[in-house]
Write a protein that binds this DNA or RNA. Sequence first.
DNA 1: CTTAATCTATTGCATATTGCAACTGTTTTA
DNA 2: TAAAACAGTTGCAATATGCAATAGATTAAG
Lengths: 147, 147
Amino acid sequence: MNGQESYQLRELIRMLERKLGMLEDGEMACCGISMAQCHALVEIGRAGSISLIDLAKLLNLDNSTMSRTVNNLVNNSMVERQLDPNDRRYITIRLTQGGLEQYHSIESGMGEYFMKIYDAIPKESRAQVLESLQILLKAVADSNCCA
Amino acid sequence: MNGQESYQLRELIRMLERKLGMLEDGEMACCGISMAQCHALVEIGRAGSISLIDLAKLLNLDNSTMSRTVNNLVNNSMVERQLDPNDRRYITIRLTQGGLEQYHSIESGMGEYFMKIYDAIPKESRAQVLESLQILLKAVADSNCCA
DNA sequence: CTTAATCTATTGCATATTGCAACTGTTTTA
DNA sequence: TAAAACAGTTGCAATATGCAATAGATTAAG
């Protein structure tokens, strides 16, 4: 019934994904660290401190994979592990000074980039675009799960 | 100047990416073939036939990576390589019967999924959302390249 | 209170993906 | 006709990934 228009929706999202994917590999490509590490770095930075398991959930990765990625970040002196004194099963992952700087640099790079995109949207359309994304996001969330 | 709102844009896109990413790993996860293969399969299906280099450009991958992915698809009997008789440097990549079926199944699965999303958008907002995506896409494209 | 169950995190293993650089064979150009 | 350019493939090394098994810590059960 809505085949025509939903196809259009699909294509638009597809192209958007592709364009934004380019971004990942290109411009923003994380100064010396891998993409996996970069994603982790940002999440750790945003969280302030976080356990391995929560980080893995956040990034949708296996715990073992996450553990190794954190290892790499530790080797790059970007983050440090601490034992959680309250429950010694947990570790607390936190950015080092260097990691913090890297994190800020990524955030500000991303910020600039999205500022540029935002400025490229005609003034009179900006509110509409933001609202639409919210609507779309909700629609995706609502139809996300379970057949 | 637009820091506030562009940040909102960034967060919305971020969440959208995440939600759609889940989709990739979840529901639609390509019946037995890898994500890389799935993307390639769809592009080949859409193109009808295509050379390796064009396919690599389309998917933003290194030629060698593309070559190997095509290899995998060939091993899975999804696509076949032919020498281009006009210029024997080129190969022509084409879906096999099985590949075609897989392709149709993916397309229809995706179609259904996006239909569901589309239906979840309030009727009176649908046109706006589509239009907004176009605007956003253009903005991304315009600010994509070169500082 | 002590054993069993549960939980976080890490490691061994096996496999897959990726890009660069070197190479083969083909076509175009000088 | 020799050299340059091009499409595609392969060797290589780095990285990522998930599953299963394990160690150590905490909680629940008997």
